[in-house]
Design a protein around this nucleic acid. Structure first.
Lengths: 235, 235
DNA sequence: CGCGGGTTTGAGCCTACTCAACAGATGTGG
DNA sequence: CCACATCTGTTGAGTAGGCTCAAACCCGCG
C-alpha cells in the first residue's frame, strides 16, 4: 500500500503496521464520491486501484480539477484541518479505496514515526507537483500547458515503476482535461488534433503516447518530481 | 510560535517543546533566500516576522509566486521529500526566521504527536487555500482573480486574530501581484486603478483597504479557509 | 432507432497581452 | 549631496490567443 514499500526497505513490523492500516476496503464506481456522504471524521482514504480527482466548483458552473489521485495515493491529508470537506473528491474511474480514520493516522505517527515521515515525504512530492502545475496554468501558453500536463501525468503513472514507456492511460474526457488546464474542451480538442497531426502525439483512447518526450521536456524545462525521493532524514 | 497556541489550549510541556524547537534564530533582509545557500538537510523554517514567498521560474523569465508565507508559517513541509530545494523561497520583506533540522520535526512527531497533528492540520489550511487559488487562476476573469487574491491575503493576515479590519498590508509590487495571479504588471495596474476609481478599494501603499468586502465575498463565493480549524481528531 | 455524451470543425469576438513612452520613487556611488 | 541608474507605477494604441456560439458527427446504449 501507499507506495512506500517501493521506495525503501521496510522492517517486518512496519509492513505489518501498514497492512493493519488498511481498514475497510470499499469499491467505488466512476463519479462516486471517494468518501461516502460520510461522517466527518472518517476522512483518510488510500486509493488501491483506479483514479480519483479533486474538483473546485464556483458560481457559473466553472470547474477546476485541482488534483488527480492514482493507485497508491493517500487522499485527505490536505483536508485534515476541516470537519467538512472543503472540496469535492470523487472517482474518475471505477476503483477500490481503503478508508481509515484520522486516529489511525495519529497512531501511525506515534508507533511508526519512520513510516509516517516517509508518508509525509511522499505527499510533499504531490505538493511540489502542484506548485509546478500552478506555474504551468499561470504562465504557459495553452499548448505548453497541455504538454506539461501530459508529461506530469505520465511521470505520475510511472512513479517508482521500472517500466519506462511513453505510453500511458488518460481516462479523462477533453472537457475534463480542459478543467484541469483552464481551457475549453473545444480548444483542448484543437490542440490534441494539432499535436497528433504533427506527429508529436498518438491517441488511442484511453491511451496516449508522447512521441518525443525528451523534446517536450527540454522545451518546457520539465522536472520529474516523482523520479527521486530523499528519505534520509526519516531514518 | 507557529500559531498553534492561538488555536488550542496547550499543556505546559507542549509549550516547552515548542519553545525548544525554535532552534537558531536568524534575520533576513528582503530578497534573501530563506534558507541560506544552506546544507540540504537544514530545511525547515518557521517565519517569525516578515513575509516570504515561493517562486517557480521557467525559461523566458516567466515567474510565478506560488505561495506567500507570513509570520507564524512553517516553510519547508512541502519540500520534505527533496534533498535539493525544488523551488526558490526567499524573503518578501525583511524578517526573522527560526531554522530547524528535519530531525527536530521528527522528534516532535514522536514526543508530541498532538502538537504534530495540529501542525499538519494548520498546514492543510494552506494546502486547501492553494486549491482555491488554483481554481481562481484557472477559471476566473482577471478582475475576479485580483479580488480573490486580495480577500485571501486579507484572511491570511488576520488568521486567528481578533481584530477584523478590511485594511491590511500588501508588501508587493504590482509586478509581483501579477506573478501571483498570472497577469501583467500593466494589467494589474489598470485593474487596481479601476477598482480604486469605482470606490471599491483604497490604496495607501503598502496598505490596502477593501471597501465592501461582503459584496466581494458574495460575488466570488469566497470561503475563508483560515477562519475555522477543526482539531478534534488530534486530541 | 433515437438519444445523449463526447468529439470535431468553422467563424467571429473579446480579454488580456505587447510595445512604447513617461513620471515618480528609490537607491547608489562619487 | 548631487547625478545617474534602476525599479515601480501610469497611460495610450494596437494585437492575438483562446473564448463563444453554432452545427454536425460519431458511437455506445436503451
Amino acid at each position: 500500500m501507499t507506495r512506500i514499500g517501493r521506495h525503501i526497505e521496510l522492517a517486518p513490523e512496519e509492513r505489518m503496521a501498514l497492512a493493519r492500516l488498511e481498514g475497510n476496503v470499499e469499491s467505488r464506481s466512476k463519479r462516486d464520491p471517494v468518501f461516502g456522504a460520510g461522517k466527518p471524521d472518517d476522512r483518510i482514504a488510500v486509493l488501491r486501484s483506479g483514479w480519483a480527482a479533486s474538483r473546485v466548483r464556483s458560481a457559473g458552473n466553472q470547474t477546476t480539477i485541482t488534483q488527480i489521485f492514482m493507485a497508491g495515493d493517500i487522499i485527505g491529508l490536505s483536508e485534515l484541518g476541516f470537519n467538512r470537506p472543503p472540496h469535492e473528491i470523487s472517482m474518475q474511474t471505477d476503483g477500490i479505496v481503503n478508508l481509515l480514520s484520522r486516529n489511525a493516522l495519529r497512531d501511525l505517527c506515534v508507533k511508526h514515526p519512520r513510516l509516517f515521515a516517509l508518508l509525509l515525504s511522499l505527499s510533499s512530492l504531490d505538493a511540489t507537483a502542484m506548485n509546478d502545475r500552478l506555474h504551468s496554468v499561470t504562465r504557459l501558453s495553452a499548448e505548453d500547458r497541455l504538454m506539461h500536463f501530459l508529461l506530469s501525468i505520465k511521470s505520475k503513472t510511472q512513479q517508482a515503476s521500472e517500466q519506462v514507456s511513453d505510453r500511458f492511460p488518460l481516462p479523462m474526457s477533453q472537457k475534463e482535461i480542459g478543467d484541469a488546464l483552464g481551457l475549453t474542451d473545444i480548444y483542448v480538442n484543437r490542440l490534441l488534433r494539432g499535436l497528433q497531426k504533427s506527429g508529436q502525439l498518438t491517441l488511442s483512447r484511453p491511451y496516449i503516447k508522447i512521441n518525443d518526450r525528451m523534446a517536450w521536456e527540454e522545451r518546457l524545462g520539465f522536472q520529474d518530481r516523482y523520479a527521486g525521493l530523499d528519505v534520509d532524514w526519516a531514518c
